[in-house]
Amino acid sequence: MHAILGKKVGMTQIFDERGEIVSVTLVEAGPCYITQVKTGENDGYTALQLGFGETKRLNKPQRGHLKELPPLRHLREVRVKDVQGYQVGQKFDASLFSVGDLVDVTGISKGKGFAGVMKRHGFRGGPATHGQSDRARAPGSIGAMTTPGRVFKGMRMAGRMGNERVTVQNLKVVLVDPERNLLGVRGSIPGSRGGLVMVQKAVKSK
């Protein structure tokens, strides 16, 4: 198993063994259950469906899907090469990872609403002085004239920002406590406190 679902708790800082301050994001990770095993014959690809977060109410189709498993709020799929050895109902917790591991954390970033180009794309805006008005946060030119006579597709402009799936790669695990279902990773992770996150073994680690 290389992934676990969890809830972002928030950030704090702790001292490492060298006495240096490390900023840490705490994740309440697991316990997670395997809720479905997808096989090549049955589904055309191999994956595991994980469930996390006990809830009180579920509708009947959801309860039927989970069968004897506890009622779980969140279900997410992870691709695996080989489903051999995995069964529905298997339970795992934060002990999946150990201190020093590198992980990728995926979550839904905080929504920023309709944001201008400076915030959304890091444009510099216009000059603040020299008789300029209404230009301080403007995008500037978005294209030429009759040739090509249109604005190119993908031109970076103002619009909805955030509230999208974001993955932060190669975060170091600094704290593991299966008793409290707690994981601590160095640095920040996407999303608001209480948001669902997925912690996976880093794809790009050596």
């Binding site: 708790v9 928030g10 704090t12 702790i14 001292f15 840490v24 705490l26 704290l175 409290r180 707690l182």
Partner: peptide, 12 residues
Amino acid sequence: MDLITAVEEEQL
């Protein structure tokens, strides 16, 4: 007690 305070308390 919330988890953040719990973790911090061990460090104090």
